[in-house]
Amino acid sequence: MTMANRRKTITGAVMLFAALLLLIELYPIFITLLNGFRRDIVILSGQKFALSQLTLDSYALVFKNSQMMRAMGNSIVVGLFSTALSVGVGAMAAYGISRFKFRGRNALAYSFLVFRMLPQMSLVVALYMMFRQVGLRDTVFGITLAHSSFNVPYVIWMLIPFFTAVDKSYEEAAMVDGCTRWALFRLVFLPLVAPGLVVAAVFAFINSWNEFLYALILTGVKARTAPVAISSLIGGDTLTWGQMCAASTVMLTPVFVFTLAMQKFLIRGVAAGGVKG
């Protein structure tokens, strides 16, 4: 076999392997998307898939379900608030860590990363009792605050490199002009690190959007978010798989759009502490 022929064979084999991997990896996603367009009763009866049975009925049921709509609304509000809170507070802290010299600077930076990796199960029971005590249980504010426990350290870690990259000359010029530290942060640094803020915000939002355990324990009917509402569509006698798949598709769409749009930043975003709920 000639070299060129060998290359061709290898490339062919790799493409076949890639196609197989894709098939396996996308199959469950495909199942979710497809069954959202089937009715619960059709799925449960075990009928073979038929093109003619595709309908929007399950979506209609999901959008008419006031509890589900409320939960999705809560998810949006909690996601936006906790993103705004953690990006605001996190940007300040990242600036403080990367542009000041002080004792314990390294230790502080490290603790923020370790904080991001603490298991939620270790915190949630204590949070439940604290929130119950001060009346934050089942409130949008409470769950927002709980989500900031992972988003604030996450955002800080994402933003430190962006703040460090800003050249000193910007800072010096502004200081000569008599700029205060606060004005410097707001008027010089924030515009310069804007790309970092966008990336951090997107991932913080996804973190909050996907989160399940805090929402399960710390919320009830009022502040429940969509992941918990979706999980309640199945269980006991309720087996509304079609609605489950339809609601899941609604939740998945923004996440997939963001991740496909942000390929360049995925590794940094995920390695800094993940997309894990």
Binding site: I206, K276, G277
Partner: peptide, 11 residues
């Protein structure tokens, strides 16, 4: 191939 990573854990 990365899409499953971003599949909501609950879903």
């Amino acid at each position: 191939i990365l899409l499953p990573v971003f599949f909501l854990p609950v879903v």
